[in-house]
Design a protein around this nucleic acid. Structure first.
Length: 777
RNA sequence: UCCGGCGUCGUCUAAUGGCAGGACAGAGGAUUUUGAUUCCUCUUACGAAAGUUCGAAUCUUUCCGCCGGAACCA
């Protein structure tokens, strides 16, 4: 991390939490191995940057390693050019795979070997069904089961022979395929005998013509992870339903190392497209100049646009990692890059649309040298930024300003030049506009000013305020520069949303090329150097620059609050597309009457036998484990009498634990729950303690009474015992008490919590609350 | 319609049964030789309903909405 990068607390997200827990539990010997597995069939984009930051970033944080692996199992799309581009981009982003560069294509022999092994164990077969036949007649649909392929029952010998001949090249593309033998009735379509290895007589950029069969993603990826000892295989949400197959292949091939797949939401950004297919279309359709066109969301494009790796990493960090499907506002990306560039970009001046200004009071032919600092006071350049100090500016009778900075009839709130107005030419003089020259069409060709010699350096006399400060360039010493102004590539917030073709939503103004005038110091600028053109934006010197022909690309414009004022005066922009909330509310739910619950006969029996609320009865009847526990409970001595309490426990708390821990069994029985309910009934424990006892039962299987005794959980329910603790908490939290008195009644909950904690979890919460409320009243 | 996933300010994201917090965006203001930067202030959210609980964004149930899954792509 470079110096000065924003320090933030250690990132926490569900993946990091999971991995930290794995490390703490010493799974995989406490090792963390991740991988970033791009397919070399396109350039990396900022969505990949998220994956890279997660895969490499987490491995680094946990003291593990991250592999860079080219997932090159499809010979028809992949290419060495992409491999090189991927390596360059990952490195540029600041990550290092060390020795760990891998290629799926190096594992082809092992995939083949494991294919034979699957066949031998009856877990895979060679299928002759054409792709179309299988998908139309056999796979079934989302709602209907599939049916088994007629080739499913082939003998091991025949399968082996066929598979070998597939490899030997005896069959045409698509004539045969190796299929997993799983379950044609699975609700997960991925599990309906998915293809594992297909025939493709194609040249592979690395293995050339060695192979004519290639593994498919679902077969290859999990094995690659296993071969490499990957512990945590992190991928995006669309692979969620592939996870079941991932685990199946690992289990069926009996590979020794078992990696685990976890999915997170991919990155979307407004006004951008992020699919490889669309990006490829933009390049091939010449809608942009190439993969590294500065308008592209590719890493190469962003790099050429002048983005820094630090800014991108910071952006990714701010976006976070979660499973919500999300689209980040491009304003956040722009903010992050401005923030970074502000510390990296020396300030210089250039005029994009020159308008000549004649300073009539300044002597003809005179050139005045002015020393101007590169950095405004108060801005500390980042440590690794080269240009510091100041440079020389030339002031002369003729200068250029931007046409946008002059108005003959200025609108309200105008802070720039206009007839009669006094403005400062930055670092130079305060000037006053005296007249305007126009051509025969009435267009302004020249502006006349007089300067105030007492204001040299731009200093206003004490107490005087000028109308504004303008950037400028001497007409005598200006360097011509090509300036490329980039804007978002699409005009639509979500290109291609709905029925729209995203290509019709390209922004025709995404690139504007101007020839401007720059201050002399810019003539020596070198490719990759970054500047802020004062009042205009952040720029980078483009690689198209040649000696004497500087090309400047705008990375991002400066924030412009004047533009906002102007925009506000104009008719309101069309409302943004539907937000999440609007989507949710689009079809307003008909006011739902609490629909009468349909009860199964079992549920009805439970309800009637024990007087349970119908909801509770249904939940218990539905879940076999709960039903068994409940049945056991009612057999116990006090079971009938406490049935309702037990049922509530079962339906509300036990079920929750079962779900969250994905438990199939529970280490206690029904009578234990009766015992727990009895403890509550006789007042030994309160509701606060019940949860804790239940958790302990789940963990140890011990009896409730034993747990209460062990942990000393018997509740404290006397005002005498609790009073002092309440007093103490109140005294220690005067500020919280203040907030309560100011109207925040929720504070009581927090105070109850504190008392509970101080009492070792033993206080009767209800009583505590009463005591607190009495004191606070 | 089946399976899986997801619903918190406009946007992204926190909270691990106890004061709904942060960032961006937006609004207002201060400072300013960049209408920049910086600083201060403010508006705005738990999809709905019912249940469990002293207390629910968090546990349970039902409903609603969104996304992914039927490539011999990855």
């Amino acid at each position: 991390m470079s110096d000065g990068e924003t320090r933030r607390p250690e990132p926490t997200d569900f993946i990091r939490e999971m991995i930290r827990a794995d490390v703490a539990a010493k799974r995989h010997g406490g090792q963390v191995v991740t991988r970033f597995p791009p397919e070399p069939n396109g350039y990396l984009h900022i969505g990949h940057a998220k994956a890279i930051c997660i895969d490499f970033g987490i491995a680094k944080e946990m003291g593990g390693r991250c592999h860079l692996r080219m997932d090159d199992t499809n010979p028809t799309t992949e290419d060495m050019e992409y491999v090189e581009a991927i390596k360059r981009d990952v490195r540029w982003l600041g990550f290092d795979w060390g020795e760990h560069l891998y290629y799926a294509s190096d594992y082809f022999e092992r995939f083949y070997y494991l294919g034979e092994k699957l066949i031998e164990r009856g877990r895979a077969y060679v299928c002759d069904l054409p792709e179309e036949t299988f998908s139309k007649e056999y796979r079934g649909t989302i709602t209907e089961h599939g049916k088994e392929s007629p080739y499913r029952a082939r003998s091991v010998e025949e399968n082996l022979d066929l598979f070998r001949r597939m490899r030997a090249g005896e069959f045409a593309d698509g004539a045969k395929v190796l299929r997993a033998r799983i379950d044609m009735t699975s609700p997960n379509m991925k599990m309906r005998d998915p293809p594992l290895v297909r025939i493709k007589h194609a040249h592979h950029y690395r293995t050339e013509n060695t192979w004519c069969i290639y593994p498919l993603y679902d077969y290859a990826h999990c094995l690659e992870d296993s071969f490499e000892g990957v512990t945590h295989s992190l991928c995006t949400l669309e692979f969620e339903s592939a996870r079941e197959l991932y685990d199946w292949v690992i289990q069926a091939t009996e590979v020794p190392h078992v990696p685990r797949q976890t999915e997170f939401a991919r990155l979307n950004i407004t006004y951008m497209v992020m699919s490889k297919r669309k990006l490829l279309q933009l390049v091939e359709g010449k809608h942009v100049r190439g993969w590294d066109d500065p308008r592209m969301p590719t890493i190469a494009g962003l790099r050429r646009r002048g983005y820094t790796p630090e800014a991108i990493r910071e952006f990714i960090g701010r976006v976070g990692v979660a499973k919500n499907i999300s689209t980040v506002d491009i304003a956040l990306l722009e903010h992050t890059v401005r923030e970074d560039l502000d510390r990296r970009s020396p300030r210089v001046m250039a005029v994009l649309r020159p308008l000549e200004v004649v300073i009539d009071s300044f002597p003809e032919g005179e050139l005045e040298e002015i020393d101007a600092p590169y950095w405004p006071p108060g801005t500390e350049p980042a440590a690794d930024v080269a240009r510091t100090g100041s440079r020389k500016l030339a002031f002369s009778r003729r200068v250029f300003i931007d046409r946008e900075d002059f108005a003959e009839a200025p609108p309200k709130g105008w802070h720039r030049l206009a007839p009669g107005r006094r403005v400062r030419l930055r670092h130079a003089y305060i000037v006053t506009c005296t007249s305007v020259d126009k051509d025969e069409t009435g267009a302004i060709v020249r502006v006349h000013c007089t300067h105030d010699p007492a204001t040299r350096g731009g200093n206003a006399p004490a107490g005087e305020r000028v109308d504004g400060t303008l950037h400028w360039v001497s007409a005598e010493r200006a360097a011509d520069v090509e300036v490329r102004l980039y804007d978002r590539l699409f005009v639509s917030e979500n290109p291609g949303e709905g029925d729209a073709d995203y290509l019709t939503e390209l922004n025709p103004a995404s690139l504007a090329v101007l020839v401007g005038k720059a201050e002399p110091s810019l003539a020596a600028a070198t490719v990759g150097e970054r500047f802020q053109l004062e009042r205009v934006g952040f720029f980078v010197v483009d690689e198209d620059t040649a000696p004497g022909a500087i090309v400047l690309s705008r990375t991002v414009a400066l924030k412009d609050s004047w533009q906002k004022v102007v925009a506000r005066a104009e008719p309101a922009a069309p409302k943004t597309p539907d937000s999440k909330k609007e989507k949710r509310e689009k079809k307003p739910a008909a006011p739902v009457e609490a629909a009468p619950v349909e009860l199964s006969p079992e549920a009805i029996a439970l309800r009637d036998a024990h007087g349970l609320p119908p909801e509770t009865a249904r939940v218990i009847a539905q879940e076999a484990l709960l039903a068994a526990l409940f049945a056991g409970a009612t057999e116990a001595p006090k079971g009938k009498e406490l049935a309702k309490a037990v049922a509530t426990l079962l339906a509300n708390d036990v079920l929750g634990e079962l779900r969250s821990k994905r438990l199939e069994a529970v280490p206690f029985d029904g009578p234990a729950l009766v015992e727990l309910a009895d403890l509550v009934k006789d007042g030994t424990i309160g509701s606060a303690q019940t949860k804790e006892v239940l958790a302990a039962m789940l963990a140890s299987g011990k009896s409730p009474r034993a747990i209460v005794a062990d942990k000393g959980l018997a509740q404290i329910a006397s005002a005498d015992a609790l009073g002092p603790i309440v007093e103490q908490v109140l005294a220690d939290n005067a500020d919280a008490v203040g907030r309560y008195k100011a109207g925040n009644v929720n504070v009581v909950g927090a105070l109850v919590g504190m008392v509970m904690k101080k009492s070792g979890g033993r206080a009767n919460a209800k009583l505590v609350k009463e005591l607190l409320e009495k004191k606070l009243a």
